[in-house]
Amino acid sequence: MPTEEKLELPQHLLDFIEQWRNKQGNLIMILHKTQEHYGYIPRAAAIELAKILDVPLAKVYGVITFYHFFKLVKPGRNIISVCMGTACYIKGAGDLMAECETLLGCGVNCTTDDEEFSLQGVRCVGCCGLAPLITVGNEVYGKLSADKLPEILAKYRSK
């Protein structure tokens, strides 16, 4: 697997680590930055971080796996997040999720075979007034119904 290879962290990430090195409790902030760069936390990057910060790899993984936000596998190019917060749930988020699964042909927390889309459920993005909604990247699509989904997904599908 390519992710097992040794990996060189990009300079801006190294700079960020340097900046945070002496601050207490820096690990989570550094993991955020790492995920921002790679889209997930590659194993090789986790190994590298453990080395640079001089903490056991087990501790790094202990933290990564505790928090839902951190991903261990590379996501697809577009991340479809269906809000499964209470406000959205009441307004039919379950149907949106089911329709996304059907349209994409992949289950929740999975990535399509062509690596075009990943599907995930999230807990409230704070736009409950627009419930039910999905987000794709930074775009929010609110007051949705399942029949609008094909059109939205088509926008992101590369031809």
């Binding site: 209470t86 409230c124 409950c128």
Partner: peptide
């Protein structure tokens, strides 16, 4: 942290 799903007072 506003963890309650369906609440966004603190966010606003």
């Amino acid at each position: 942290d506003e963890g309650d799903p369906g609440a966004y007072m603190d966010r606003s």
